[in-house]
Amino acid sequence: MMELDQDSWWMVGMSFLVALPCALLGVFLILRRMSLVGDAISHSALPGIVVAFAFVGDLSSPWLLVGAALAGLLVTFLIEQIHRHTRIKQDSAIGIAFTSLFALGLILIRVIIGDKVHLHQDMVLEGNLQHVAYAETVGVMGLDVPDSLIPAAVVAAGTVILMIIFYRVLTLSSFDSGLAASFGYKPAVVHYGMMAVISVVVVSAFEAVGAILVIALLILPGATAYLCTHRLKLLLVLSVLHALVSSVMGMYFSVWLNGKESAGVVVAGTGLFVLAWMFGPADGVVIKAVQRRNRKLDEV
């Protein structure tokens, strides 16, 4: 049996801390049929980060989160405006809005940051979990914890708390926005509130997994769980389990193949998805075949 060293376990921890809030929010993105909006937010965070960096000049400043969150809100607002006021449909509007902001971000990196700071474009795209290994440590309950885990833990805990408080509002407005609106839950407030939280979560995941792989963390857990159960609460629990298992398996993968950790986590997550696709107890290929056969036998 292959052993993981301590640094690798910290990377597992980091990976889980960013995957956890993504998994929970992703469930609602999927249910609201807005998975691509997650894609849009993750890419358009870039100009927000760069502009915020221009003001504070520090890559670890929490203001970068604020800048990215604002950019995330801006892209959702742009998407809404385009598809509401023109004949362009939502999928095209998403394609226009986020690529424009992402391109703008790429230009701004050069103009504002130049070569002064280590903000490589490939890092922006695929991230790097190894930062955890080089990070300074802080003492938490007698453990030397890499300091980059702390903000990730705060974002994860914050998301879980918000989810618990607004679970009912989110569920009802996702299922039946008409009834939700008639109860006085403002659909626009729920929508933009959720987008703001996703923006923050996506950005906090940026350093670890980058703009593209974070989409997998948003969609894979919920999609996998969706094939395993028809109950929302269980679905949320399973998606968190997916985040945990793919973080651990992904690290083993990357050590075994000497590959990139963040990619390993996503590949592991995809493996779990394929398993659910085949053997998922709710909608898997096998269970459906069995049900079909039973139905045929019943008819005979």
Partner: peptide, 19 residues
């Protein structure tokens, strides 16, 4: 509404009490 939504009959009836 989306009837594939992962909720039970009881969950939907309970939504009536949310207001």
């Amino acid at each position: 509404v989306d009837w594939d939504f992962p909720v039970t009959v009881m969950d939907v009836a309970l939504m009536g009490t949310y207001g």
